[in-house]
Amino acid sequence: MRRINAFSLTLKQQLAGAAIAAPALAIVTLLFVYPFLRSLQSSFRSQEGVWTLDNYSEALSIYGGDYLYTLWICGVSLVALIIITAIIGGLLRLGVYPLLEFIFKIPLFVPFVVVGHAMRVFLAPHGTLNSALSITGMFNPDILPSFAFSSLGLVAALVWKNLGIGLLLMLGAFRSVNESMLEAARGMGAGKMKLIWHFLVPMNKGSVGVMAVLTFTSMLGSFSIPAMIGNAGGSQMIMMDLYHQIVYQQNYGVANAIGVLTYIASLGAAIYYLKGVTKK
């Protein structure tokens, strides 16, 4: 088969390729790469234009707690997501559950803002979940806790939104596992849960890791979910602080320092992508 690689391109082909790439490259470079670099630069500059680390010390002293809180929330959400998707993915891989896959694909198609609002309505002190619980008559409706506006509400919304993508990646990996291996384990008397946690998950460590990195970054960068759920005082997600600094304080130095801190936390995904590209 005749392979055309980058080195054997004629000048005409190179020009054609460059012309095709130009519009998309221009938009993404001008409206993402350039502002991205500007945010790096601005984070090291004071409002008078002097190079300094003050923005970082200010960002860390005011928002250091929120930064850790954000990482904590994303970490907890990630663990919950991995447990849920591994169990569902395992059940789908090991048994016949029509409709289950379809049901769990739904979150992928529900917008982030809607998820935030839905969780708020569902988990609020007088929300639908508490109403439903009080119908059963087992709980006193007035002492039921409120989960919305709390860490649990955030975790629930972040996990819910990522169920679709998480399951998709998990199931893709599980389906590539050799059938005879599982049958051998089953022959030895392993139950479904044992098969999932002792075979399927460890055998797909790489894919589970990829899924973890991708969803962690998406959770970290999520702005609409914390914006919709809000908080009841106390710590809040770092993206809300960043928004506050820009819109109300208009302190871009500190805002960009916060931004760079979130870039650092997202580096896992960036490194994974880079590895993928260099492999190709």
């Binding site: 998309a24 490259l25 993404v28 470079t29 409206l31 993402f32 790469v33 350039y34 502002p35 991205f36 500007r38 945010s39 601005s42 970054t217 970290l220 960068g221 702005f223 993206m239 960043l242 928004y243 820009i246 871009y252 805002a255 960009n256 916060i258 931004g259 760079v260 979130t262 870039y263 997202s266 995904a269 960036a270 992508y273 880079l274 590209v277």
Partner: peptide, 20 residues
């Protein structure tokens, strides 16, 4: 170049786009 917007959070970058 087309990877970056997938790999990093949008809000910090878009707030600089707003300035531009």
């Amino acid at each position: 170049i087309f990877l970056l917007p997938q790999a990093f959070p949008q809000l910090p970058v878009f707030s600089n786009v707003m300035v531009l």
